[in-house]
């Protein structure tokens, strides 16, 4: 009895993997049906559908990068404290003294790469016309995921609390001030007056809601931290589930109709 047999020929192993190694056709089919992770995929796919020259592998890369961001992000959360007192120094220590401080590099470069991968994935889906029926709705879900990816990256940009961070967020959030109707410098906001009291002020407009303050401050850091680590990832996870499920339900990887 070889060592491999000893490892696999017992009740524990067999309770986890309910079939032998997928070396023959039957087990290669069965493995796709009985493994939780693999059952995302169909049992068989069109050969052209999985060709790299067709898919560019960018949707999968995006998902891979999302997982990298989750893992490195959780590790960073163990260390980083989102307060004015600690935020910058925690990042400084991640760079200079912390074991596995490389997580920050992985997280940041992974985030940039994820933005690029999302764009390229959508680019491919467009160029192959894969958004056309019956995949219209999944394209809409994908667009929402694009927006979510950008928001994730944007909210994360603030957390190091250095000059790069707060001024990039300041530039970005200044746009909110100009939102028509609900931004204090937006068209129409000055018309919203009730009994002589303006409804939209710099204490109640869209920018205030985004930053929870009139400018980027500690409350902004807290708000962006929660958005970045909890709120948006939850929304993204839900959308990813729908996205993957619909890929299967709409006929798998696209191909000539």
């Amino acid at each position: 009895m070889s060592i491999a047999d000893k490892i696999t020929d017992n009740q524990i192993w067999k309770s986890v993997f309910r079939h032998p190694m997928p070396t023959d056709r039957r087990n290669r089919v069965v493995v796709m049906l009985t493994n939780f992770f693999l059952h995302l995929h169909p049992v068989s796919v069109r050969r052209q559908g999985i060709a790299l020259s067709y898919t560019w592998c960018m949707g999968g890369t995006t998902f891979f990068l999302f997982l990298v961001e989750v893992v490195t992000g959780v590790l960073l959360m163990f260390y980083y404290r989102p307060t004015l007192e600690h935020a910058y120094n925690d990042i400084l220590n991640l760079r200079d003294v912390t074991t596995l401080g490389l997580m920050r590099e992985l997280h940041r470069w992974g985030a940039h790469a994820m933005v690029i991968a999302v764009w390229l994935h959508m680019y491919r889906v467009f160029l192959t016309g894969s958004y056309k029926p019956p995949r219209e709705f999944n394209w809409v879900v994908g667009t929402l995921l694009l927006v979510m990816t950008l928001l994730l990256s944007f909210t994360g940009y603030l957390l190091p609390w250095d000059q790069l961070a707060i001024w990039a967020i300041t530039v970005g959030s200044n746009m909110a001030r100009a939102t028509p109707g609900v931004g204090v410098e937006g068209p129409g906001a000055s018309l919203l007056v009730l009994n002589g009291v303006p409804l939209v002020t710099s204490f109640s407009d869209a920018k205030f809601a985004l930053l929870s303050g009139r400018s980027v401050g500690e409350m902004t850091l807290n708000r962006f931290y929660v958005l970045h680590c909890v709120a948006i990832p939850l929304a993204v996870s839900l959308l990813i589930m729908i996205h993957f499920w619909r890929v299967r339900k709409d006929g798998g990887i696209s191909g000539p109709m």
Binding site: R28, R46, Q48, I50, G60, T61
Partner: peptide
């Protein structure tokens, strides 16, 4: 067209799963 040329089916394991692993 090129996409129609490769329309025969292939098993996900190993063809797609291994590609994903390498990626």
């Amino acid at each position: 067209n090129l996409e129609e040329l490769g329309s025969e089916k292939t098993l996900t394991w190993p063809d797609l799963v291994y590609t994903e692993l390498i990626a």
